[in-house]
């Protein structure tokens, strides 16, 4: 493992989550689970972050926020969908204001199921994400620029970048 996987910084955004998964993510940072001992830091700045942890599903108001955060992060980057709402919409899938899982909008690398996802599963998901991060780094994967309505197009290195 290189330096990157030894100190991954995460950014967390609560799409329309019920808080259950969010407080479990915070619980991961606190003494019982203490992921900071692995060098994992929760940052508020998308440009500092390597891993984008999203809880909850997409709704009408947070669509743009998620795109903004994703686009602002620098490569390599990995997206972890935490909780069943982020994976597929969960129990709220049929709600009028819920568009579905996070993968309808941005590419998701790791899915962490659960309602609420347990801290152990979240840590497992982040560790899995480290592998993906490392692979993306080695292959110089360029992430797509995400625009509205789930359509993605490759903004940077359109002809040269590995897909």
């Amino acid at each position: 493992m290189t330096y990157l996987a030894k100190s991954p910084w995460i950014i967390h955004y609560d799409a329309s989550s019920c808080n259950g998964c969010d407080i479990e993510i915070l619980a991961c940072l606190t003494p019982m689970y203490d992921v900071e001992r692995f060098g994992i830091i929760n940052t508020g700045n998308p440009k500092h972050a390597d891993i984008f942890v999203v809880t909850g599903s997409i709704n009408e108001a947070n669509r743009e926020v998620i795109q903004n955060i994703y686009n602002q992060m620098s490569d390599p980057k990995v997206v972890v969908a935490v909780g069943i709402c982020a994976c597929s919409g969960g129990v709220f899938r049929e709600c009028y204001n819920v568009a579905g899982g996070i993968d309808k909008l941005i590419p998701v690398d790791v899915y962490v199921p659960g309602c609420a996802a347990r801290p152990e599963s979240i840590i497992d998901g982040i560790v899995t994400a480290l592998g993906v991060l490392e692979e993306k780094r080695n292959k110089h994967v360029r992430s797509p620029m995400v625009t509205d309505h789930g359509h993605t197009h490759h903004h940077r290195h359109a002809e040269g970048g590995a897909q």
């Binding site: 108001a61 597929s88 009028y96 204001n97 309808k104």
Partner: peptide, 22 residues
């Protein structure tokens, strides 16, 4: 409230059963 459907509680909404993943 910014909602996908205008005045959602005043209408009957039929949401197509879409697949879980894109």
């Amino acid at each position: 409230y910014k909602t996908a459907i205008k005045h959602p509680f005043s209408v009957t909404i039929v949401k197509e059963d879409d697949s879980c993943q894109n």
